[in-house]
């Protein structure tokens, strides 16, 4: 639930320009889908937003404040693979964010604090359809269930922005449809601004409030290095989608600051 602003952002690797002249305002609680051909800088865009890469020029602002140059708990992420920790069970994976938040030295909770966090994690696991799988290791889960777990893990920590890097790209169509339903519900019931990179146009239009297409305007071989991709289309989905008022029993955010009412 944060406004994001890209202010004339360029990304270059040496002489190679990947992205140029990216200026973009994203409203709080938007669901932004980024589409475009391979190698057009969608993932670079996401990595800059994550804080993993720095823009070469320009700046990125979140709620008017320049972005920290490293990932932090304000921005959750789900990758296509390796998003969950293989050495932790399903329940431990979801608990991890809370344990790291409240136990600075050991990174583990005990007693009543652990009990409370566990109850919350179990409720969240039930929400994402992983009830009964708490004690399994991720390798025992199907691809779709692993991504559900990754979503639950990210949401448990209560990020303001959720970044998705082709999260459902490796899933079967049926499973993908199920997880779309879940994704929509999470977006409605938490206070997230979502930015999703996807190859799947129908997915982009089904989920997002706004679809951004990246494209290289000049793609002749001799021009490739010197001209980066830029935003070629910026489509608001019509009829306009907005996040629903939060449900009666919303998924609780782990943030300490009070969320805006009816955001």
């Amino acid at each position: 639930m944060s406004a994001i602003r890209f202010d004339d952002v360029w990304k270059e690797y040496g002489d190679h320009i990947v992205l140029e002249r990216i200026t973009l305002e994203v409203a709080p609680r938007a669901f932004l889908a980024l589409v475009g051909p391979s190698g057009c800088g969608k993932t670079t865009f996401l990595r800059m937003l994550l804080g993993e890469e720095r823009p070469t020029r320009g700046q990125i602002l979140i709620d008017g404040v320049p972005l920290q140059p490293e990932p932090d708990a304000d921005r959750g992420v789900v990758f296509q693979r390796y998003s969950v920790f293989p050495h932790l069970t399903v329940l431990q994976n979801v608990l991890l964010g809370r344990e790291l938040q409240h136990s600075k030295f050991l990174g583990r909770l005990f007693g009543a604090a652990k009990k409370a966090a566990t109850d919350e994690a179990m409720a969240l696991l039930a929400e994402v359809g992983l009830k009964g799988h708490e004690d399994k290791y991720p390798s025992a889960l199907s691809g779709g269930m692993q991504q559900r777990l990754a979503l639950a893990q990210a949401v448990m920590r209560g990020p303001k922005i959720l970044l998705l890097d082709e999260p459902f790209g490796a899933l079967d169509p049926g499973i993908r449809a199920d997880i779309h339903v879940l994704m929509k519900r999470l977006w409605n019931e938490t206070e997230l601004t979502v930015v999703m990179v996807t190859h799947d146009l129908s997915e982009a239009f089904r989920l997002a409030t706004r679809v951004i297409a990246f494209e290289r305007n000049r793609d002749r071989p001799e021009e490739r290095e010197r001209y980066g991709a830029t935003i070629s289309r910026d489509l608001e989905i019509y009829p306009r989608r907005t996040a629903q008022l939060r449900a009666v029993a919303p998924i609780r955010s782990g943030r300490d600051d009070p969320a805006e009412q009816g955001a």
Partner: peptide, 23 residues
């Protein structure tokens, strides 16, 4: 270790010490 895991841990708020200890 996959880069994604270390990024993910940071987005869960982990410090360097916590990443070393728990991840």
């Amino acid at each position: 270790l996959p880069r994604e895991q270390l990024i993910k841990a940071q987005t869960l708020g982990a410090s360097s010490w916590q990443i070393a200890l728990r991840v």
